[in-house]
C-alpha cells in the first residue's frame, strides 16, 4: 500500500512541552495527488505538514520522500530538498516585501542558478497563468490579498516542485478570492504534476482535493488510500 507513496510519514510522535502535537501520525501522498489535511484547530495538522516538509523533525517515526529518509538527512540536505523539490504556500506574509512580485516569483529559480533573464521570463509566464500579470512590477504590499496569494502560488510552483505544501492558503481571503486562488492553484498543480498537501479547516477548500485525511488528537484518519 505504501510502496507507491512519493512522500510518507510513519508513526510520527512530537510533543511541545506537555502537549502531544503528533501521537502516532501516519500519512501517504502519491505523486501528483492533492491530499487535504483537515481537522480542528490544535489537532496537529500544521505540525504534520511541517514534519512532512522537513521543517520540523519528529521525536520518533520516519518521514520518507522518494525513498529517502528525511529524518536521517543533515540540515543542509533537507534545505536543499526544500529548495529543489518542494514548494510552499502559507496563509500570508511569505513574499519578500522589498522585491517586486515578479522578482519574488523568480527568486526560487535565481537561487537554483537560473540566469536573471530566463528567471524573469519564466516568472512572468507564471504570473500570467495565475492571472496576476498586471502586478509583476508592484511590491507585494501594493497587491491585494487575493493577488498576493496567487503570486505566492506562482512562486511555489515556478521551480516545478514535486510536492507543494499549502497551509490554509485561502485562510485570509473572502470566499470569492479564496475560490479563485484554489481554482488556479489546483489547475496549475495538476498541469505540472505536483502533489499538494493542503492543510485547511474549510470543507469548501478541501473539496478541491482528491481525498482527505482527518487529523485528530495528533493521529491521522486517512481516507482510503486507493483510487
Amino acid at each position: 500500500m505504501t510502496d507507491q507513496a512519493l512522500l510518507s510519514a510513519e508513526d510520527l510522535h512530537l510533543s511541545f512541552g506537555e502537549t502531544k502535537a503528533l501521537d502516532g501520525a501516519s500519512l501517504h501522498v502519491r505523486a501528483g495527488e492533492v491530499v487535504a489535511l483537515m481537522g480542528p484547530s490544535g489537532s496537529g495538522k500544521s505540525t504534520l505538514l511541517h514534519c512532512l516538509a522537513g521543517i520540523l523533525s519528529p521525536e520518533s517515526g520516519r518521514v520518507a520522500y522518494a525513498g529517502r529518509d528525511l529524518t536521517a538527512m543533515s540540515d543542509s540536505e533537507r534545505s536543499g530538498l526544500r529548495r529543489g523539490e518542494f514548494g510552499f504556500v502559507f496563509q500570508f506574509g511569505q513574499l519578500v516585501p522589498e522585491l517586486t512580485c515578479l522578482e519574488n516569483v523568480a527568486l526560487p529559480l535565481r537561487l537554483s542558478g537560473t540566469s536573471r533573464r530566463a528567471a524573469h521570463r519564466i516568472a512572468g509566464e507564471w504570473l500570467d497563468r495565475l492571472e496576476v500579470g498586471d502586478v509583476a512590477g508592484k511590491r507585494p504590499g501594493q497587491a491585494s490579498g487575493g493577488q498576493g496569494q496567487r503570486v505566492a502560488v506562482a512562486r511555489a510552483l515556478v521551480a516545478k516542485p514535486r510536492v507543494v505544501f499549502a497551509d490554509e492558503p485561502t485562510g485570509a481571503l473572502d470566499s470569492l478570492n479564496g475560490e479563485l486562488v484554489m481554482k488556479l492553484f489546483i489547475a496549475a498543480a495538476k498541469e505540472t504534476g505536483a502533489a499538494v498537501v493542503l492543510v485547511t479547516h474549510e470543507a469548501r477548500v478541501a473539496a478541491w482535493s482528491d481525498r482527505e485525511a482527518v487529523v485528530r488528537d495528533g493521529k491521522v484518519r486517512e481516507q482510503e488510500y486507493a483510487r
Binding site: A203, R204, A206, A207, W208, S209, D210, E212, V214
Partner: peptide, 12 residues
C-alpha cells in the same frame, strides 16, 4: 463527513 466531502468534490 467522508460522504459529504465526496459530494462536495463532485460539485466542485
Amino acid at each position: 463527513r467522508a460522504e459529504h466531502l465526496r459530494l462536495m468534490r463532485e460539485l466542485t
